[in-house]
Design a binder for these strands. Structure first.
Length: 259
DNA sequence: CGCTTTTGACCGGCGC
DNA sequence: GCGCCGGTCAAAAGCG
């Protein structure tokens, strides 16, 4: 009996070893994939910058380019995103960041089944700051708050009546800390907008996403990794981690010298 | 009663 | 030119 037990135990150890080896290999492949994606993203970013450069210089010369600035340009220049993990059961789209917000609209967008809520800062009558809040498509417990503009008044010192557990002197940092990934974005500092919905379900959105390197990568690489990517796109944690990594790679990049 | 939220309508940009 | 889509408006309802 004891020998049988020992045999079973040895077998289990063997299985665990194999599993460990497999996970290690998988980890290696993932790292490789991430590196490739990162480099692809840099290429795309450079491409985008080049396109911007060719568009913007003759901003006043052609009539067509005289229209309002492109949304991407605006969002890169002015918007910032904050990710907040909330209770999945909590259906409200409220992000407690210490400011008072007045909701002025709600929309169902095409690329995300959850509604997007639009807020204006109501602490000061002339405050131009706007906020969009939408649940992450991959993980409904994550709220994505997009801030636009800068407050023209003092930030609140007291915690709101809701009594959330963020630090009063830096409410936003507290919020960001709730997110498992180190995407340190600050609504008062213009940063890069990060699209969390990397793994779009292919509803014709590919054309609108120059950053859809995942799709590009899938098409241009070998089948085995393709399998990994396909499975990973279904993995919420990986998607979030990847989004954070991309965000970090963007913020770590030397700022492009603007003409 | 005043403020906030909800929600359908409207508007303007953009792609085809 | 037309339709789609995101963003905003504004009237009505809800709430303290």
């Amino acid at each position: 009996m004891a020998a049988l037990d020992g045999g079973i135990r040895n077998h289990k150890v063997e299985v665990l070893k194999i599993e460990l080896e497999r996970l290690r290999k998988e980890n290696e492949d993932l790292r490789l994939g991430l590196e490739i994606m990162g480099s692809k993203y840099e290429v795309l970013q450079a491409h985008l910058q080049k396109n911007m450069a060719t568009i913007s210089p003759d901003h006043g010369s052609s009539q067509d380019s005289n229209k309002r600035p492109r949304t991407e340009e605006v969002s890169v220049a002015k918007a910032s995103q904050v990710f907040v993990r909330t209770n999945p059961k909590d259906k409200s789209l409220t992000v407690k960041d210490g400011f008072q917000w007045r909701k002025y609209g709600q929309k169902i967008t095409k690329d995300n089944p959850s509604p997007r809520a639009y807020f204006r800062c109501s602490m000061a009558p002339q405050c131009p700051v706007k906020k969009k809040v939408q649940r992450c498509m991959e993980d409904s417990s994550i709220l994505v708050a997009t801030y636009e503009g800068a407050h023209n008044h003092e930030p609140p010192h007291d915690a709101p009546a809701g009594g959330s557990s963020y630090s009063p002197d830096s409410p936003i940092k507290g919020l960001v800390a709730n997110f498992p990934c180190p995407t340190t974005v600050d609504p008062f500092q213009p940063t890069v907008t990060l699209d969390l919905t990397l793994s779009g379900t292919g509803t014709g959105q590919e054309k609108r996403r120059p950053q859809n390197f995942m799709e590009d990568y899938r098409k241009s690489n070998c089948g085995r990794v393709e399998e990994y990517v396909a499975s990973l796109t279904k993995d919420t944690n990986f998607t979030l981690a990847l989004a954070a990594a991309v965000a970090r790679s963007i913020t770590d990049q030397p700022k492009p010298t603007k003409a």
